[in-house]
Amino acid sequence: MNKHTAKVGWLLASPYLIYSAIFFLIPLFWALYLAFTNWNLISPEYETVGVQNFIDALFSPSVRAAFWVTYKFMLMFVPIVIAGSLILALIIHHLPRWKGLFAVGYFLPYLASGVASAIVVKGVISYNSPFNQFLRDVFGLDIDWLGSPTLAALVIVLMMAWKFVGYYALLFLSGLESIPKEVYEAAEIDGAVGWKRVWHVTIPMLYPSFYTVTILAVGLMFGIFTEPYVLTGGGPEYATHTWQLEIYNQAFEKLNAGYGTAVAIINSIVTFASIFIFRKLLEKWGGRHGWE
């Protein structure tokens, strides 16, 4: 590449670079500064407090709860959403016709507003809903869906899985479509049919899709806000208290913007570290099947 071409490249990239500088880079440095202050964003006076915000955050029960709740959600959500989206993708893949129609149909929940979906779910599991009335009348089951820590977390996870299964199924579907027929034919000659074929051929060949979906799903767990905000407010007893709820409560409800920013920075470090670990684990698994 000569210097002239390089300059054209810089020129063409400059709108995005300027945009990124204004909306990402400057806010990032600003956030780093803010995290070391006790500013509430509105007072003309504030002090730098060193690493106090970070120390307070590390010893805060609500931050610790957000940390563990994220992994609890991850433990439930990732297997459910991967299994669900893979099964869905396999079903659509084997449809004789209208694959596109079904793929788009299952993708629709992803486009639904989180608030609207949460309100619908709240209605479905409310005490006097037909669903709960049915459980009480027929099975004698009186379930407090949002009052039990485990069930409340499960409701949120299932709701999110419903929303994302269609989207992730599309990623798996594109992976399935790209597996060459020859690979299956060769496997068949070697005696791999039925479940053996799925287990030993399809799944390893879907490694790039697994990689993408897993990283997306893991990353998603660190950004949950709307569902617990509408359904549980983070309760009961912090069972559904997420990082984003904690940041929102601190920065916008309690006006502790400096502290809230410190929590956001810790959240981004934990997110980065978790995704890094998952990447390494996935790459190890992929390496065993010949993916570099």
Partner: peptide, 14 residues
């Protein structure tokens, strides 16, 4: 007291 999410409990007489 009922401390469960309930839709329009007063209106429907719950």
């Amino acid at each position: 007291v009922l401390t469960r999410e309930t839709k329009d409990p007063f209106e429907n007489g719950t």
